[in-house]
Write a protein that binds this DNA or RNA. Sequence first.
DNA 1: ACCTGAACACCGTTCAAGT
DNA 2: ACCTGAACACCGTTCAAGT
Lengths: 186, 186
Amino acid sequence: MSTSSNAPYHHGNLRQALLEAALTILQRDGEAGLGLRDLARAVGVSAAAPYRHFDSRAALLEALAVTGFQRFTAAMEAIPLTNPPDLMAAMGKTYVLFALDNANLFRLMFSPQLKKDGRPGLRMAADAAFDTLRHISGGDTKTGRIVALAAWAKVHGLAVLLLDGQIAIRAGEDTEALIAEIVEHL
Amino acid sequence: MSTSSNAPYHHGNLRQALLEAALTILQRDGEAGLGLRDLARAVGVSAAAPYRHFDSRAALLEALAVTGFQRFTAAMEAIPLTNPPDLMAAMGKTYVLFALDNANLFRLMFSPQLKKDGRPGLRMAADAAFDTLRHISGGDTKTGRIVALAAWAKVHGLAVLLLDGQIAIRAGEDTEALIAEIVEHL
DNA sequence: ACCTGAACACCGTTCAAGT
DNA sequence: ACCTGAACACCGTTCAAGT
């Protein structure tokens, strides 16, 4: 594929290079630390260049959030299918560990800055990711929906509170074990 | 207290006036829509004036988040004390409804921009607010802690997912009833 | 077709100077 | 003690011009 070249982008795959560098910066510095001009500098291109590939900073962030949801989906689909109780616990743990392992990306996925109204790409990626969770509910009964939503809320809340440092981890306590206990609780 | 004056701030209570205007703007436009210069303009003061009262924009946001946690605390303390099962449900509903009624303020309280590390004021206000929830747990047993954290996570997650428009409200469905069902589920 | 250079209209923040 | 005016070092974004 790659014809050897010493003037790396300037022509070819700038969009891809921007996305990769942006993801690295995001994971390290968070959304607030990801400036378009810094990004352009990091990739060795003029400040205006990214605008040939993304309409705005928000569009760039949206693209990152979409790949976040895709990775989330992949993590969920990698769970081996077992019977309901074990499956549900496995999904819960995967959900929370994904959030912890990809903190700034996870935060971006749920950032209020990126209103999912009017960003259909993001909405679709998020819906696809959460469709993955539908296996939890035992069908479409009314109480099945309540059970599913309650489980989802618990797991999502746990992820968010841990990310926020709101849940105190005691000295020498195993975070993963605590997650398992909470997830498996009913 | 108030000596009648037609040159409103310029001397007296600018800090208070800034906080009130900031809260109004925050609730209407969200954190991203709250600029220090806009705020100064709204209050009729120079762009540099707020810096006599707040070290930075982040410090202003922190002050708003602190009042958010105080209001949250007040809402929780206003719940009449009953026996455990009803009390827990009432707290859960209050928690979620507070988030829905104060969307942008609630988001700010948990904004990753305001790292609670190194902002001891925020951390203290948050801790005070959540101490209010300790009534849930039936003591300090190990499983009591798990039950309490699981309940907290469920309620917080429900608030966040609803705020984010992630939980689909069906046509003609009563949001408050749905909240009650999820909160009361176990 | 894709990128650069220079500009525009903003920011948050600082600081000397005013009252 | 508290506020203003002007400046500094940035932003995101646009647009004519280059290749």
